[in-house]
């Protein structure tokens, strides 16, 4: 059985990285110890009745020894705005670790992580726990959307950057970097997290090259526990339609790219 907890976690730090991006560190020992790469926490917003639903965030980093757990979040709406002004010491009610994360990166073939925007938070523990370091590709709209480059580099990973406007790294898409890396290392294992169109493109690349790719899909969530069927995604299945809905929160958020039924 999965280990999952609901705990009241005090905030240690809550600081702006740059622009709309923030890092939140909390103390959540049981969750920090159980967390696997690609899993997420579900955070309650204190003010009722404006917010009846929790907000999901990927677990970025953990320290099992002191119980610290970190997330990276972008302020996009009322919930994340609310979180951004919370002070150290404030307690957050969180559920976690939730969902199925990434498989460990293989030790015998090269691997590559492709991340768009805050997607790089979901893949960090995967790189940190890798036996053979992955190449890391970070993509975003512009320089301000490139996060955690230093963190990945300090693990020893080679990091390549692409932005839509060319303000950091190569001008273009992270999937173009992926094609380049796969040209050099054609048998790579792929792990990816980011906006759905990017993940679909990663899936297509993997399929055409017969490579293993795992992707973490972002869906609007409600319970986060697999109970309500709000967060579903079409997965290939043995049904007349050839697909069935799977729950992103409990069957995922990480899926084999090949298993997804893209409309």
């Amino acid at each position: 059985m999965l280990e999952q907890y609901q705990i009241s976690a005090p905030i240690l730090h809550n600081q702006q990285l740059h622009g709309d991006y923030y890092q939140l560190d909390i103390t959540a020992p049981a969750i920090a110890r159980a967390a696997q790469p690609g899993q997420f926490i579900h955070v309650q917003l204190p003010a009722m009745p404006d917010h009846v639903l929790r907000r999901p965030f990927s677990i970025y980093d953990v320290n099992p020894t002191d119980g610290r757990l970190s997330i990276i979040y972008k302020v996009v709406g009322k919930g994340t705005e609310h979180i951004s002004v919370l002070k150290p010491g404030t307690k957050l009610d969180i559920l976690g670790p939730l969902g199925r994360g990434f498989s460990p990166l293989p030790g015998d073939i090269p691997s590559v992580i492709a991340a768009g925007g805050y997607g790089c938070a979901a893949t960090f523990l995967l790189a940190k726990r890798a036996r053979v370091l992955p190449t890391v590709l970070l993509g975003g709209r512009s320089a301000g959307d490139i996060l955690l480059q230093d963190a990945y580099e300090s693990l020893g990973c080679q990091v390549l950057v692409a932005t839509d406007d060319g303000s950091a790294g190569a001008k273009g898409l992270v999937t173009e970097l992926l094609e380049r890396v796969l040209y050099e290392a054609p048998n790579s294992w792929i792990a990816a997290c980011g906006p759905t169109p990017m993940l679909k493109a990663v899936g297509m690349i993997a399929e055409s090259r017969k490579l293993n790719a795992e992707i973490s899909l972002d869906r609007v969530m409600c319970c986060g526990m697999g109970a309500c069927f709000a967060c579903v995604i079409k997965r290939k299945a043995n049904t007349p339609e050839k697909w069935a809905y799977a729950r992103a929160c409990s069957d995922g958020p990480v899926f084999k790219a090949n298993d997804i039924w893209w409309d």
């Binding site: 639903l53 309500c228 069927f229």
Partner: peptide, 13 residues
């Protein structure tokens, strides 16, 4: 999808 959304005072599903 989308199947749920938050509204003031509750949610829709």
């Amino acid at each position: 999808v989308p199947r749920t959304t938050e509204v003031y005072g509750g949610m829709l599903n």
